[in-house]
Every structure is written in structure tokens, then in C-alpha cells.
Design a protein around this nucleic acid. Structure first.
Lengths: 263, 263
DNA sequence: CGTTTGGTTGATGTATGTCAATATTAGTGG
DNA sequence: CCACTAATATTGACATACATCAACCAAACG
């Protein structure tokens, strides 16, 4: 399944291992699938956790909550992602992992998984790959949070979600719309901006015909414009992603804000 | 060597594997040590890279530069860290990796390393651990960038560097000062704030006797105060770290700014 | 069909950015 | 070791993106 393998400029020699590793995962996780409702905590912050998950359906987020109430969604997982791989090494997590929508997840105990992958290097490779891929997204996120404007961050997020949903097979490559089961407050907590400002940026996007978000659905009006806004923040490897083929290259060195995008 | 293993609430069962994996690394990297001057790019953004490094001496940073000139240090590596592990999976990196000081690094080709770890699960565990540990730091960094004030971020950074330098054996656990070979501009590019503002925050820290930074040296005047400022951003696992034992717990729910810290 | 949760909008405040000038330190060739 | 230069640090004046507060509206929900 890791179709998302195409996210990176991959070494061809590992693709076989990844595929075999995924099959091994199927075996190890067989029959463990369960459904949880939106909002449910799959991992509680600070509690011991012995489980590694594979997300089959729905959205999940890793959430850190600070003592004074501030909170941050660190990473969002989409179908096909493994999460809480860290449980292989650590007994506790400082973050909660929460279902954003109704989800279907499979699970393994860390001992079972470790025993399995000590005998099967492909399984180890599959796990390692997941963590590396996650790290790649975190790198991008750090750049976005550190250097991006609110407009850029939101555009980057919407482009990223779209690309990942396509690669996971959840939506078609030419889909104009997708479901995004997060409130504006949650989006803000992922982008590091306030819910009010998320709303304002969304309004400007809507008024410029870039994207409209109503209910929990994102409708992309002008993908080129969206990519142009996110442009500076998109890493090079993402430019070559299949779903960008045909999208005009983002313009030169100037920062573009949501306000001046022609409809 | 991964003394930094103590960074996390570790599963005891992997400590042995980690130690053996480190020894295996010694073997695989034997004789490859080289010295590079400050400023040298060890990996160039966008170029193919086949090498995995182990940092023995000095500081190294992973740097993303955007087309319009903005730039962000994504992660800083200290002695003992493996870096560019991603080269095992990806042929290119969107980021440069740059020596911040004179450095001593060892290197392996990705093929050699992969062959070695397919035969030695301990080596695989050691590599995996590095990536997971890096991811833990990225999680913290995302929270800091997303939700922290400039004061908090800088304090967090200084506390983090101190802790890691202690764990890597570079400085003594009771050291009051350490070398930080980064310009204020580079620090700003890591914290996501301007060099000017870095300077202002440093001034406020200095005036309050919290820390003084002169030349490339950090002198900690009041560790308690520093930890108190960074407090909200420090993840729970870090609170238990050996070097914090004896440090008073950060106060309740209020946000503390550099300005109101009693000397 | 009221209550809660999330969305929308305006008014106002502030942390931090930008620009620009000066001081200091570090680097370099004579 | 000095003189010159370039890099970095420091400070002030001013600009702005975004946060906060507060009210109101719309949708979801039991």
C-alpha cells in the first residue's frame, strides 16, 4: 500500500522491500481492525502506550496540550499511515493521539511487532520508512511554521492534504473537492495561528475563488493559485509529485499573499 | 555511545541493542573520519546524496533555503548524532546540511550501511532510534514554533542545547557555560524570528541575569529562571532528564515573559 | 426546539518584523 | 603587529501581521 512511497525521490532498491513489508504488516495486524468515533483519544498524553497503529479509514492527529491551555496538532495522519511507531522505543508519549473523524485502525503490540521485524528486514524497512516519511513532513512543517505567513501555511496545508489523499487512493487525482474533518480551531492549532485568523484567511481565499471551505468540505476553485500561494514553502521533491504535473510553476521570488491572487 | 538514549522514557529491552548497534557503527564507519571547516556544506540542497554521517565533534545544521531568500535551520546536530539517515531511502534532499563550526564526521555509503543492517538487527535498531529521537525533537520544535513566544523559544533552545551537550559528554553536568557556534542570525533562522529580535530577547535575558551570550559563548546565570521561561514548551519526558533534577518545577499556568523574571 | 458548538465579523492591542544607522568584533593582507 | 575590511551585534523609530476580545449568527444535536 505505501503508494505514498512516491512522495520522495526514492531509491528504487527499497520499493520491493516496502511492498513486501506492507504485506507482512497485513499479516501481523490481521483481524485487529476496530472503529472509533470522532474525538476519541487513541493514545492519551503521558500514559503508557504499547500499541502501534495502522490507519485504514479516517483522520487522526497527534496533539500536544500545554499546561496553560495552548495546544498544537503536531502531525495529521491519513489512511495508510502507521502511527505511534515510537511505541517501539518509548513507554510514554507526551502527546495525545486523537481521532478527528470516525476512524478504522488496526493495531499491534510493540513486542509482537518487534519480534516480527527482527526476523523480517522488510518489515523493519517498512517501519523505518514510515518514520522517515513522517520526518520529511515535519521538516516541511517546521519551515512553514518558522518562516511562512498564515496564507502560505494554510495553502500549503490544503495542497498537502490533497496530495496525500490522492496518493492514499481516498480521492481521485482530478478531484476538485475533499472532506477535511477539522474545525477551524483545530486547523489553527495545526498552523500555529488563531481560529479567528484561520477564518479570515479562508474568507480571503473564498473571495478570490481560490478555495471555498463550507461544512467540512474543501472545494478547490483554482489549484494553480493555491499552489502559487503555498509555492515558496513546498519542498522541491513535492514539485515533482504526480498530482502537480500540469500545474504551472509558482512565480519567481516574490511573496504572494492571498489578497492579490487574481480569480 | 547513545547516551542520549536517556532522552526518552526508554523501553529497557532496547538499550542493549542500541549499545551493540553503536559498536557495529564504529566498525562500519571505522577510518572514515574527516575534518571540515565551519561553513562547509556537507550535503547540498537538491544534489544527490549517498552518504550517512556520524558527527563526532562540532555542530551541524540542516538548512532549508527558500527561493525568496528566507531560510530556516530545521534541526541542529550535536556530537554523537547520526545525520542524513534519510539517504538510505531518498536520493536527494531538499535541504542543505552545513557545518556550523569546525567538525569531525565519519561517513558511510548508504549501500554499505543497508547491507550491514540487513544482517544486523541491532544496527537497524540504532538507525531507527536515531530517526525516532530526531522526530521527538521535531515534535517539540513544531510545538515551540507553532505556539511559543520568542522568549520561550529561545529559552527552550538554550536549555535543549545544554541538556544535549551534557548527555553527549561535551560539557560537564554542572557546567555554567557552553560554546554555541551560531550567529544571532542563524539562531533566528532556527527559531523563526528575526536576527534583530533575537538580539532584543538576548538583551532582556542578560539584563535579568538569566543568561548572557557574548562572543559565541553562553553563560547561564540562572538556570531555574531559564527553565521557568521555557517551561510550558518543555515536554514531559524532558522534565525528568537528569540535568533537571534539582531544578524547581516551572510555575503554574501563567505565561512568563523574559521581562518579568526576577534576577 | 432549545442548547451547544462552530463560524463570522468588527474593534482594538501587541509582539515581532523591517529599515537604517552605529558600534563592535573577527578576519586578512601587508 | 597594524590597518583595513567585512561580518556581526546593537539600538532606535516605525510598520504590520496577527492575537485577543466580544458580539452575533448558523448549523448540529439531543
Amino acid at each position: 500500500m505505501p503508494d505514498s512511497a512516491r512522495y520522495m525521490m526514492h531509491r528504487p532498491e527499497i520499493l520491493g522491500a516496502l511492498r513486501r513489508g506492507e504485506v507482512a504488516l497485513d499479516r501481523v495486524m490481521a483481524g485487529s481492525g476496530r472503529i472509533y468515533p470522532a474525538g476519541r483519544l487513541l493514545v492519551e498524553a503521558g500514559s503508557p502506550n504499547d500499541t502501534i497503529f495502522r490507519l485504514r479509514k479516517g483522520w487522526v492527529g497527534r496533539l500536544r496540550t500545554l499546561e496553560d491551555g495552548r495546544s498544537q496538532f503536531i502531525l495529521i495522519f491519513l489512511p495508510g499511515d502507521l502511527f505511534a511507531v515510537k511505541s517501539l522505543f518509548a513507554t510514554h508519549s507526551p502527546d495525545a493521539v486523537q481521532a478527528l473523524s470516525e476512524v478504522m485502525v488496526e493495531q499491534v503490540d510493540h513486542r509482537t511487532l518487534r519480534e516480527a521485524y527482527e526476523r523480517d528486514p522488510d518489515l523493519a524497512t517498512r517501519c523505518m520508512w514510515q518514520v522517515i516519511e513522517e520526518e520529511r513532513r515535519l521538516h516541511n512543517w517546521v519551515v512553514g511554521l518558522g518562516r511562512g505567513s498564515a496564507d502560505e501555511r494554510l495553502a500549503m496545508l490544503l495542497v498537502d492534504f490533497r496530495g496525500r489523499l490522492i496518493l492514499s487512493g481516498t480521492i481521485a487525482p482530478d478531484a476538485q473537492a475533499y472532506d477535511l474533518p477539522m474545525t477551524q480551531e483545530q486547523i489553527g492549532d495545526h498552523l500555529g495561528i488563531s481560529n479567528v485568523h484561520v477564518n479570515r484567511v479562508l474568507r480571503s481565499f473564498r473571495e478570490n475563488g481560490v478555495v471555498a471551505m463550507r461544512g467540512r468540505r474543501v472545494t478547490i476553485g483554482d489549484l494553480d493559485a493555491l499552489v502559487r500561494i503555498a509555492g515558496p514553502l513546498l519542498d522541491i521533491s513535492e514539485r515533482g509529485r504526480p498530482e502537480f504535473v500540469g500545474v504551472r510553476e509558482a512565480g519567481g521570488g516574490e511573496r504572494t499573499s492571498g489578497g492579490d491572487v487574481g480569480a
